[in-house]
Nucleic acid binder design. Structure first.
Lengths: 336, 336
DNA sequence: CGCGTTTACGTCGTTCGTAACGATA
DNA sequence: TATCGTTACGAACGACGTAAACGCG
């Protein structure tokens, strides 16, 4: 059994049991991969894949088990290499982050800029997608960090570091009736207008829908979008009242839109940054977490690095004391 | 990085950082091992060992981390091989068991005989030692099963399957005063005589000492031995009253010794069988557990095989319902 | 000078890539 | 016939073992 054989095995699995594709991904010849698979199967004395004629059909039960173990082995091998780079004190490497639009567009730019200044030699890859797509990317193993809000259940194999909380903001065109209320805005007020907001389906966002339902209100959602920019566009067109994450209501918008804080109307959401369990966090990764979750102390960072389970991390933070991030200049404020 | 390099690395560590010894253990040449270590260190770009002149001195901090990861990798590689043998339906393999004298001498013979009948092709290795020595053997990675009593703290990296409980028996020469009591024997009765028993120090055995202390008694222990055979010898010589595990009071002894059950006088001890976490249990290993811990149902065996943590196992058994093992013919009885 | 490690070098087995072949839809 | 996997073979590489050199106590 060789590490390379296991690597090829995983490559085959991760490329839809296509040896040719796996070989290309590994930058090697197809017969080489084919042969190594055969050698591995011979050494173990069992078939890892079912064959359809000559093509690989599916994975045998034994194959599944072997593949799982092989993944552990490759992960630890990667960890050894990470450790090595770390002790070698290199500030080089790469960092792949999968995240949602709101984070990528409104939160990460500052952080990334700071990070690049600090670690110019670390290659950054940002991937934007829905929670589900992020989960897929995580499963496909190419991602160092996932950043998302709620939907913890999609990411049970990640360690989640709670980073900040945020409220919604209501955006309306300048001079809209809602800006002229002499009292605090209510859900009932909102429900009178056509709404433009995020797609309800994905992740914890449906908490918004639930907030209305709880008061027996049935809001008229005229448009759902995947990102705040689209929402703003339609609000500007007068299509309806927009509800977005407060972070998305930035200073520029306030020139032609009215931004009304909606604290209290909807439950607060918590955004976390997650990384795969049992992976060695390199110094620059820890630094990224620090930049993203700015409330974390040096001691807590250290504890995170040592954490073996999600509980170890949860113990470090009081959810009710996480900072709340707003929009525009009031970027991050302490917990209320 | 090659699996073999990691294997050599661990061999070096496990042989007192002696490359020559490691090479012998690996049945290969010493320069080969030396070279592979060097190649590994070069590839990782860091020293794994500190050097004293030419000899290896200690392990660097980086080295420790790499070694830990390497152990995981080798363990999983072994697991893959185990899986392979298992699916191949071989009833061959080997089983190394480390245990204490009492188990090896009085409990295991029957079980081993049965096991050998069932799996004649599985090579059995039995190693006898104190709890501490067993812990060392476990740490040295050469052991599949450890069987011992109490002292769970020494074996925190094992999964412990509680197997049975047992009481002490008091053994005295035929006609001894203690046999003529017309009431149940008490600790105070015992404390009047010189005692011969196990070494107090090791493992949970000191519970015996504590039992006396709790009643303010200071027994006169004239002899402590590591095994029951020695104790019986001295009891026969009239040196004192023996206290042994009930299993050790077998039928033969009753010819020239009086055996008095000491249930209730001392706390019951629980003997467990333990195996390393995250290891694949082969069919014959599961069968051995079943033979040793005869109270386990097929369903529970299956659950054990799937258990990922000690808690998963603890959940399966009620400590108060474990069978109690006696000596002589009354080998195992149901829980009271 | 003995012990243990590293260096040097020749041998042998393994891996890899190219090219040809086989099978399947 | 296009796609995908296996077989065949030669070249390059890497691991291993023997022999010898080196460094330390």
């Amino acid at each position: 059994m060789k590490l390379q054989q296991l690597k090829y095995l995983l490559a085959i699995v991760d490329n839809g049991m296509n040896i040719t594709a796996a070989a290309e991904r590994m930058y090697t010849s197809q017969p080489g991969v084919s042969k190594q698979l055969k050698l591995l199967e011979e050494e173990l004395g069992l078939q890892l894949f079912t064959r359809k004629g000559k093509s690989l059909g599916g994975i045998t039960p034994a194959g599944h088990q072997v593949i799982d173990r092989a993944r552990i082995i490759m992960r630890e091998a990667d960890n050894i290499r990470s450790l090595a780079s770390e002790f070698y004190q290199e500030e080089e490497g790469s960092l792949s982050i999968a995240t949602t639009h709101t984070q990528a567009r409104y939160v990460l730019p500052d952080i990334v800029a700071e990070f690049r200044k600090r670690f110019p030699k670390v290659g950054l890859n940002l991937h934007q997608g829905t929670s589900e797509q992020i989960a897929d990317m995580v499963a496909a193993n190419n991602i160092d960090f996932a950043i998302a809000t709620g939907s913890n259940d999609l990411f049970s194999d990640l360690m989640l570091v709670p980073s900040y909380r945020w409220d919604r903001s209501i955006i309306v065109p300048k001079g809209h009736e809602l800006t002229k209320l002499d009292r605090k805005i209510t859900l009932a007020d909102l429900a009178k207008y056509p709404l433009v907001t995020y797609v309800f389906s994905f992740g914890g966002q449906s908490s918004l829908k639930r907030a209305f339902e709880k008061e027996g209100l049935d809001p008229d959602v005229v448009f759902t979008a995947r990102d705040a920019d689209v929402i703003k566009t339609y609000v500007r067109m007068g299509l309806g009242v927009g509800i977005v994450a407060s972070m998305a209501a930035d200073c520029d918008d306030r020139k032609d839109l009215e931004v009304i804080a909606a604290e209290g109307l909807f439950p607060r959401s918590t955004t976390w940054i997650g990384y795969r369990k049992n992976t060695v966090l390199r110094a620059y990764m820890v630094e990224f977490i620090r930049l993203f979750a700015s409330h974390i102390s040096a001691q807590q960072l250290d504890d995170i690095r040592r954490a073996a389970s999600q509980e170890d991390i949860d113990r470090l933070f009081d959810p009710a004391r996480l900072p709340v991030r707003g929009g525009c200049s009031d970027s991050v404020t302490e917990a209320a």
